[in-house]
Design a protein around this nucleic acid. Structure first.
Lengths: 103, 103
DNA sequence: CCATGATATTGAAATATTTATATATATCGA
DNA sequence: TCGATATATATAAATATTTCAATATCATGG
């Protein structure tokens, strides 16, 4: 089942930052701990936490705790449905569909 | 032919504002003059011009002059391809396609 | 329970964005 | 060309965002 998608303003605002998109790229298809994300970006740990918080609030990441570490991964489903929602709202003449993978 | 789409950061930043989305909604399927857009929003004419400038720079609106007036309409094609691009970048597991209308 | 390591939160500085007022530019009709 | 109207630009104030240093919280091993 596809998730309920964000309001387009909230959705785009959550995405509209270079550092957040860098983080999103990093944990797009894998689970990374905060420390690993810090290593792979040029920003401090609190800054990474801040951006992860914004992404989390928007439902754009999933989290999993393992011991002291918290692992993050991008929620691609929410991302995809947000993109479709955006297109449905602002580009109705160019219908877009998600080709959901067979389960 | 589908246009070359924006960098995801530029694309989302252009969209990430409530006033701009209001303007985008207004001129989504119609041509509106700046004055008409001002009437239908709660902001002043310079503010509308400012936002139209941001949308124009991102290629998200088309313009047409008729006498003293300049008409704007949303470039749905750029919008749609930007959405697809975003999804391709950040949600590769949920492939999205534009169903281009038959020409 | 305490010390340690991982992540989150607080507070503040730097920067960017949004908005409005004032002004400039451009087009048209007389 | 002048005046009127439509839109754009410049400037500045208010607000929001990004970032970091300092500190707090949370989970684990001893």
């Amino acid at each position: 089942m596809l998730s309920k998608s964000l309001d387009p303003v909230d959705f785009t605002r959550a995405l509209a930052d270079e550092t957040r998109q860098k983080i999103m790229r990093l944990c797009c298809c894998q689970w990374l701990s905060v420390g690993e994300i810090v290593e792979k970006t040029n920003v401090t740990q609190p800054t990474v936490s801040h951006h992860l918080g914004i992404l989390r609030q928007a439902g754009l990441v999933k989290t999993r705790r393992s011991g002291k570490m918290i692992y993050y991964t991008l929620n691609q489903e929410v991302l995809a449905s947000g993109c479709c929602n955006l297109a449905e709202n602002f580009a109705p003449e160019f219908p877009i569909t998600i080709n959901v993978e067979n389960p």
